[in-house]
Amino acid sequence: MTGPTIGHLRVDGATLRYEVRGNGPLLLLIPGGTGGAAAFDGVADALAADHTVASYDPRGLSRSPLDDPGEPQRVEQHADDAYRLLELLSPGAPALVAACSSGAIAGLHLLTTRPERVERLVAHEPPVVEVLPDAAEHRALLARVQDTFRREGLMPAAAVFAAGLRRPGDDPADVPAATPQPELSAEAAARVRRTMGDMPYFLGQIVPSFMAYVPDLDRLQEVSGRLVLAGGTDSRGELPYRPAAFLAERLGTSFVHFPGGHTGLSTHPAEFGELLAQVLRSGERSVVSR
């Protein structure tokens, strides 16, 4: 299959880099973290068999630069960026949207503010921790992360953040040691460099803003028929999983378990993409035990 078509969209305060593959109804993929459009490389080609698949680097990542690198980030602005892409690529017609992690938070806001543009949203582990009964604990975690970032730098802050995401009682020593990886291709190595280069922006500007976001639960209830909440089979009890499961319970909707954990899109791309295609195709919302 030929590579994607690359485009650039000028939005308020930034220039978005996006990729388009395939033909058919539009499927917009919203990445989380620092992965950008490349986070969907393992699934995009297969999904493009039935859809026009668009993925992009959210504003502020290295390939979608901000006019002002220090500009505070807001979920509302990121959701508006997604809306602008929908307007460009699927004018006047509702589109399918799949989003992960912080991208799924932007997806939730897009759904509640522009429901006429979203046929269905699959939201995988949006860490909207403010909906949880113990939200105060997570606010304290975010404060510790930012304080550590200011005092000690990126890697110590990232370690505090990672520890706060684990399920209660997990011992970091129980995490399997990384297996040796083959030498990376030039393209993969460039992706790793971008990911690491974007970490200060993500941890310093995206995490505190996005994880403080409070979704409009009444509005989500109204549009819940277009929402598929999802989590990883391996991330039950972890912090990013819990808000998705909580929202599914609160809204009375079902909950789809995808293979892997929070990063199952990267660790199990074939299985993840196959289930995503099934959910998009049929709207199936198979309930797996919570």
Rank of each mutant, 00 (worst) to 15 (best):
A54T: 14
P182H: 02
M196I: 14
P215S: 10
R17D: 03
L165K: 00
L217I: 13
V43D: 00
R167W: 07
Q221F: 08
A163W: 02
G3R: 12
V214K: 14
D134G: 03
T34D: 03
L239K: 00
P4G: 05
A230G: 05
L276Y: 00
I206N: 07
Q221G: 15
L154P: 07
L142W: 06
V175P: 03
R150C: 04
Y241N: 10
L165G: 12
V192F: 08
L110C: 04
G3P: 09
R17F: 05
A123P: 12
H262N: 03
R139A: 10
D174F: 03
V175F: 09
Q205S: 15
L220S: 04
T5C: 08
I6T: 13
H124C: 07
R120T: 04
T267L: 03
L29C: 14
A104E: 07
T253M: 09
Q77S: 14
M1S: 14
P182W: 00
F210G: 11
L66H: 01
G7V: 05
P200V: 12
R144W: 02
L265P: 00
L96E: 12
A14N: 03
G33N: 11
R59D: 02
A106H: 08
L154H: 01
T52D: 01
R193E: 13
R21Y: 06
G260D: 09
P182T: 09
A248H: 05
I206K: 10
A245G: 03
G164F: 07
I105E: 06
A162N: 11
G264N: 06
